[in-house]
Design a protein around this nucleic acid. Structure first.
Lengths: 342, 342
DNA sequence: GGTTAGCACTCTAACCTTGAGAGTGCTAAA
DNA sequence: TTTAGCACTCTCAAGGTTAGAGTGCTAACC
């Protein structure tokens, strides 16, 4: 549905005013604020039409108009143009991310923090999906007389550790045996194929050595599992409380959904590759029917990987949020790519 | 201030009814619910007296009474008796904690989770203070051609890792040199003395070897720092939203305080050793003036260590919360002690 | 002296009414 | 096609009313 130029202009002005003020926008206040060169009556006619077509609604007869989900959608798709973050802003973002650039997880946590800080909304970031990555190396560190830590390093740079316990006293020699046997067995194996049957087959393969191994094998399975699973960093959840135009019970629903890492990860996994905006009921989850999720994926070595997203009310400065997300995404992608190459 | 037996009985009945219902308790409804063998007029006289003495207040003239901070205090100190968690409950708690019993941190996270789940309030748990503990061992794991992970194990069983980067290509031989040199230097050193000057002295001591070491030394300093610092596990923060008798802005203040890990850790550090209840303004933090913090410390090898705490409204079932906290505390202490011995 | 029945009193919460203000849609004229 | 004008609608805030809950006080009772 194409809108005439003036209708677009009026829709745009209403949305931008509403985003700024949070108040329903009336015909009179609109012309005084946005410098449209027509009378309020003309604006009223246009508004009535935009309302009929579903771009605006009136909370009640004597109130101004506010944008509908469809109104925001049209604005985002056809009117809004995103200006990238300024050079100075970009440098600031990069410097903040750089402070904790040791591991993908810490970069993503910083990313989530800074997105939340800059947008003032809740923010989440997922680690790259490890479904296709493989075991690169397994190492062991003795941590006690009966305990040791397995360190699993994957081909996509994720490092997971797991402490395990043995019935017998651990010696450097035993760890060496573990190291050799397990790297022989696991190196190059896809994380997704390390499941219970695989572990059992491996144990059988080790013969009598396997008697020593239940703890080790479970530790490796656990660490591989966690390396494969997408984990979710988040920041600024308390900011959800201050989404004024959302009811208390809706905020409660959102908070509970976000705290359920499993469901959240699944929803984030299904988001598209490009920057996208899911407004209200466009979201796949009913809990988010009164929220907007703006998301993008960062790329590692040009392959789209994890998600960065902002969760906020429908009424948000989409331009600003998208530009921040894209800037952080670019920096995160570059940093993680660099981290893995080395 | 000692209260006569009947006054105690009435105060107790009012508090217990109020905790259950959340409604101000009137003289008439009190006798019908709590089986006191006197008339409502007598109860009214006693209530008037308890109000004069500061144990109760009336929200307004025509409402019933609700307990004041002082009322709760008297109830907790002189009336309430805590019945320990049932055997079955205890077994349940232990089994949940056992699922993730690899490290102190994971035990404490599970502890926080289960406390929040059982009490339906927000819960926090701190790791043991590492101020007095020492470096037990440092190990290295190669993670990339230019990166490696330092693993710092402390005398109190905390294990921290930190990835660092070197300008040169890392080989097993180099890591061996690091291992030897650094264990010689750091083993037995108190975490609290590993600061910037110490690192510089150590670097000077290494002579030309130190040129290779800036990344390593910083990694060890960082890991030691984190092993020393108390870290805070938390759970159920969203439950703060549903504390009905607290205003929205107060909930906001609490949420923001809890999200500030540094201030929160400092407050928790200053809590007493025994189980304690800080009601409303008894809390050291102004943000918690409308909340109650119930806390206890778990003991590692009979030494009081970190804190387990519940943060909720004044109106909570203190009996139940205290018994749950003490039960979890006992289990956590035993598990961490066991973990370290091994 | 402690306890109780009775009663006047107070206060809130819920409801209604009212008026001001904001914004609209429609109509007729430009 | 645009605009001025106007009657209309609806919300919000303020003020008023009523029912109900709970109180404190007094006088009688044990």
């Amino acid at each position: 549905m194409e809108l005439a130029a003036r209708k677009q202009k009026i829709l745009s002005a209403i949305i931008e005013t509403y985003i700024k003020t949070g108040e329903p926008v009336g015909s009179k206040s609109l012309i005084s604020e946005s410098g449209l060169d027509v009378s309020s009556a003309t604006v009223r006619n246009e508004m009535a039409d935009l309302t009929n077509r579903g771009f605006l609604i009136q909370p009640h007869t004597s109130a101004g108009r506010i944008p509908t989900q469809q109104g925001y959608r049209y604005y985002i798709d056809n009117i809004m143009s995103v200006t990238p973050v300024s050079q100075r802003g970009k440098e600031y973002i990069r410097s903040v991310l750089y402070e904790n650039a040791d591991s993908p997880e810490s970069i993503l946590q910083s990313a989530s923090d800074i997105i939340s800080q800059l947008t003032n909304f809740a923010s989440v970031a997922t680690t790259p999906n490890g479904e296709d990555s493989r075991i690169h190396k397994i190492s062991f560190v003795q941590t006690g007389s009966h305990t040791a830590m397995a360190v699993v390093i994957t081909s996509n740079g994720i490092i997971k550790t797991k402490i395990f316990r043995c019935e017998f006293i651990i010696t450097p020699e035993i760890l060496e045996v573990f190291d050799k046997a397990l790297n022989d067995t696991f190196a190059g194996i896809k994380l997704s194929s390390i499941n219970q049957p695989f572990i059992q087959t491996a144990a059988a393969h080790f013969g009598e050595l396997s008697l020593f191994m239940p703890g080790v094998l479970m530790a490796i399975k656990d660490a591989s599992q966690r390396a494969k699973d997408v984990s979710v960093c988040h920041s600024g959840y308390t900011k959800l409380l201050f989404m004024a135009d959302v009811s208390f019970s809706a905020a409660r629903g959102v908070a509970e959904f976000l705290n359920n890492e499993h469901d959240l990860a699944r929803m984030l996994e299904n988001l598209p590759i490009d920057t996208s905006v899911a407004i209200g009921r466009e979201n796949s989850r009913i809990e988010l029917a009164a929220s907007t999720v703006v998301s993008t994926r960062y790329s590692i070595d040009s392959n789209p990987s994890g998600v960065l997203a902002v969760i906020g009310p429908l009424r948000m400065n989409y331009c600003r949020v998208i530009s921040i997300l894209e800037c952080v995404s670019e920096c995160v992608g570059a940093m993680i790519s660099e981290l893995i190459e080395i």
